[in-house]
Design a protein around this nucleic acid. Structure first.
Lengths: 326, 326
DNA sequence: GATCACATGGCAATCGTTTGCCATTCGTTG
DNA sequence: CAACGAATGGCAAACGATTGCCATGTGATC
């Protein structure tokens, strides 16, 4: 299959009887050319099926009109919302979105940050596993916006865990719970630390005992271990690092014949796809992942260089939480 | 924040005391330079933090080392697996993956196909909504691999629905069902047509009555309408266009107090995330979405120009299907 | 009618890399 | 020892767009 050569700006210029500079300006600087000329050029370009070559454009201007999104785990539905939001915001702004999976590996994250650097105008790094100084160093080279992670000096979009965890604790307390177990995720997780810190503060204020266990893998597979531990200790309310873990816990509890929420209440974080139709439907703190993704891209495009944007969270109360059976 | 200028090939050449051509060859044509020279150049490049500029590279060679993946709906978890598989395969081959959402719109799909064209080496188009001739026309310009859609003359990766639908019908028949209702998705859906065609053939062979209803939206939101219709007609076994719809149906049935599978069996397609923990867990025909994504990228890279790759499917029997209550 | 400002279009340099072609060096071979 | 070919490195011309600067033409102003 022989592919037709793509029309270049030179072809258009020749066909339209103008200089390439005029063609270029007809596209990128509408005011700079006569309206009639411009229209003529655009028509000719259209006839020839001319599409500006972004690589060539990037060479001169240094901007690629491309943004990168780095996520630790593409298979985690939590990040689907982020991808969607980011892609929408990018498309709306006429940018192209590159998506890469760091596979929870700091090395891979570091590598992508440097190898992709000349190819993109900036990065949204979601749930970065990199130490602060590595991030700052990368930010000296490229524009970076963090998502669900904050580092002084870098712009970031995060969920409002302070308010969110309070909602969680208030909810459990209102049901009559006086103690809760936090089933924690990976030790290095920034959002995990925020969640736990927020829970502790809220618990202190509301007279609830809180203990943290773990770490557990923040996946369905982490569920059994976490559930068994909670059961062994006689917990009546558990708050899980995220919904993946919570759903894994739910499954294990069902397997072991434990009634939810009568015997034990389960609460998650994120409100991922499926949280409303697992069994029982999961009470969880919803993050606005789409908004987070698009907000991060927005900051990137507006060239924000600092400041933390906190997005509201909302507790979605479903059937997995209830008063403890006395 | 002032960003440091990136090192270029010229900087490396100067620092290493060689010509830029030698630096270039040290990277891209290892045999072409003396081993010692090469090592020296690479070391200097590393010290300077040199990363080749892909835009500049693309200018000369015409290849961007970038692949695009077009999906109709990023929020559908079915495509998450495809994205993951595609991204992995691309990363493994040293390619960058651009992801774009066509939002089920043929126009947007068409637009992306042309506007992204000079930016990428090829496209994986998943579940294309475009007519055959539009696809062929696009394929005259760019390299294209179809996914879950086939068009004569274009390479494609599809699920083996022939075998898959047979498994579905055999399963239902073995439970004692003699009739089934197919709750169809969008009229233009290629995979929907395949599924229905396969079901019909299998039903004919196995003495099962099959009728098709719809179209319904292939989303959770399509569930209520589809479920109500099935109920009204007294269906005892429904096969849904995909899992999203099936889960929507399941929810609606639960709402209306219908017992699954005693009163009605529900089967889906895809085995998306959540299909195993919805209530009851969904019997569904699993597609290997990761494999599909990576196979498609593989075909793109190997410059395949034709032929259909059929990926095996596997029926996952769960609790949503059972013998009809007599 | 001369002057001037402004609108418009063209020329050519530039961005960073690849690559065809040529020059040099060096080891072989007859 | 002359001749030759292989290995290696450099020169310079692309690639396709953008953009600073200049030339020309036009209408307004005094």
């Amino acid at each position: 299959m022989t592919r037709e050569r793509r029309a270049t700006i030179t072809d258009v210029a020749r066909a339209a009887g103008v200089a390439t500079s005029t063609v270029s300006r007809a596209f990128t600087r509408p005011q700079r050319v006569n309206a009639a000329t411009r229209e003529h050029v655009l028509r000719v370009a259209d006839e020839l099926g001319y599409v500006p070559n972004p690589a060539a454009r990037a060479m001169g201007t240094g901007r690629t009109q491309t943004l990168a999104l780095l996520v630790p785990d593409l298979t985690n539905p939590f990040f689907s919302g982020i991808i969607t939001g980011a892609e929408q915001a990018a498309a709306r702004a006429g940018r192209t979105l590159v998506v890469a999976d760091t596979q929870e590996s700091p090395e891979r994250e570091q590598h992508l940050l440097t190898s992709l650097d000349p190819a993109v105008d900036g990065f949204v790094v979601a749930a970065s596993r990199l130490p602060d100084d590595a991030l700052r160093e990368a930010a000296a080279r490229s524009r970076i916006v963090l998502l669900n992670r904050a580092t002084p000096g870098l712009p970031a979009v995060v969920a409002d865990y302070e308010s969110g965890t309070r909602q969680v604790v208030e909810h459990l307390a209102s049901l009559g719970h006086r103690e809760l177990v936090f089933l924690g995720g990976p030790v290095g997780s920034w959002s995990g630390a925020r969640r736990w810190a927020g829970l502790q503060r809220a618990c202190a204020d509301l007279g609830v005992q809180a203990v943290r266990w773990g770490p557990y893998s923040p996946t369905l597979a982490g569920g059994p271990g976490a559930a068994d531990a909670a059961l062994a200790a006689g917990a009546r309310a558990v708050v899980c690092h995220n919904d993946m873990l919570a759903i894994g816990v739910l499954r294990r509890l069902a397997e072991r014949g434990v009634a939810v929420p009568a015997d034990i209440s389960v609460v998650g974080f994120d409100d991922i796809f499926g949280a409303d139709f697992c069994h029982p439907p999961l009470t969880t703190l919803a993050e606005r992942t789409r908004d987070a993704g698009s907000a991060a891209v927005g900051l990137l495009i507006s060239a924000e260089t600092d400041g933390v944007t906190a997005l509201p969270t909302e507790l979605r109360v479903r059937a997995s939480s209830g008063p403890p059976r006395s």
